[in-house]
C-alpha cells in the first residue's frame, strides 16, 4: 500500500486541504500563523529519528542525529514562540 502512487495521492489531498484551511486570516494573526505552521514543518524530526537510530552506516547516523537536533530546534522553538506571541495578543486585547 505504500507505493509511490499511494503517497502521491496523499500529497494531492493534503495540498488541497492546505489551500482550503487558510482563508480570511486577520492581519494580526499573520506572523503567529506563519510561526505555527513553521513549527509543523519540523515534522522532519520523525524521519530523522529513524535514520539517527539505525545501526549503520555511521554517515547516515551522524547526518540523522544532526537532523534530529536541527528539527527539534524548529519544533520546540517554533511552538513556544508561537504560544508567546498569541499570549501577548490576548493580554493586549483584554
Amino acid at each position: 500500500m505504500n507505493g509511490a502512487e499511494f503517497l502521491l495521492f496523499i500529497l494531492m489531498l493534503s495540498v488541497f486541504l492546505g489551500f482550503e484551511l487558510i482563508n480570511k486570516v486577520p492581519a494580526t494573526l499573520h506572523t503567529p500563523l506563519m510561526s505555527g505552521a513553521n513549527a509543523i514543518s519540523g515534522i522532519t524530526v520523525v524521519g530523522a529519528v529513524a535514520l539517527a537510530g539505525a545501526g549503520d552506516p555511521t554517515t547516515s547516523k551522524i547526518l540523522g542525529a544532526a537532523a534530529v537536533g536541527l528539527a527539534m530546534i524548529n519544533v520546540v522553538g517554533g511552538y513556544m514562540v508561537t504560544d508567546r506571541m498569541l499570549g501577548f495578543f490576548k493580554k493586549k486585547e483584554g
Binding site: 496523499i10 500529497l11 492546505g18 487558510i22 506563519m34 509543523i40
Partner: peptide
C-alpha cells in the same frame, strides 16, 4: 517513505503559499 511527513509537509507548503 513516510506519510506523516508528506501530509504535514504539504499542509505547511500549501497553507504557506496562501498565507
Amino acid at each position: 517513505n513516510n506519510n506523516v511527513l508528506i501530509v504535514a509537509g504539504s499542509l505547511v507548503g500549501a497553507s504557506g503559499i496562501i498565507l
